[in-house]
Amino acid sequence: MGKKEIVITKGLYTGYSDKQIVCENINAHIERGSLTCLIGRNGAGKSTLMRTMCGFLKPIHGEVLLDGKKIEDYSHNALSRRLSVVLTEIISEINYLTVRSVVEMGRYPYCNCFASLSHEDYDIVDKSMKIVGIEDLAGKSMAALSDGQRQKVMIARALAQDTSVIVLDEPLSFLDMPSRIEIMKLLRDIAHTQEKAILLSSHDIELALHFADRLWVIDRNSHIYTTNAPYTDSSSIIDDVFGGQSILVKEFLKA
């Protein structure tokens, strides 16, 4: 297993081109066995950073190191065996797929071009559905699920990919409060029991403060700093993220 830090960013600049830099000089890392949450306001650059962490966007300067190797130096297949993603987009194309066949897609990096799975693959698929607690839904079609259940299926799919890192971009966006709590709890448990390094982005600070082991905070000047639980200075974190509006937010949280 080696050292705990599995993904490290060194002097990372994210953005779309030299002239469109979103966040500057990010030096942060995520660890095995812990849930890291990236928090920031909408438009603060969360998605850009997440896309860079997934390898979808190239860093403008600096580097993202996964297991000590630059993320863009991995082949498609090699990267897909080390890092899996859960994305925000809602996909209507998979409505006619069963839950099981969506989770089975997590095994695609390991199987042949006909997508035929081995017994071992099926075991991993079953195990992933069990961890997430959707084994009863296996035969249902995706169209029949609630948003929370769909999100769990996508998490099970990422688990089936058997990677040491899971990156989730705004996994809580379309969910109601009980489902949000459930998903956060689930992710924390997965990180702790499966020794995964999980990074998710959210603008739900309260949940992040409550569940995350580590925080990446984008403050209102688009600077990023990291902090570990327990968060003794949670109100200053809220200040950093929301700036002037923080008093209102704090009042709201107290109520």
Partner: peptide, 19 residues
């Protein structure tokens, strides 16, 4: 077949599945 199935999830997911 594997590529086509992966593309159902969209290009980003497909890329993350090694396609």
């Amino acid at each position: 077949i594997r590529t086509l199935n992966a593309l159902l999830l969209g290009e980003n997911y497909a890329r993350n599945m090694g396609i």
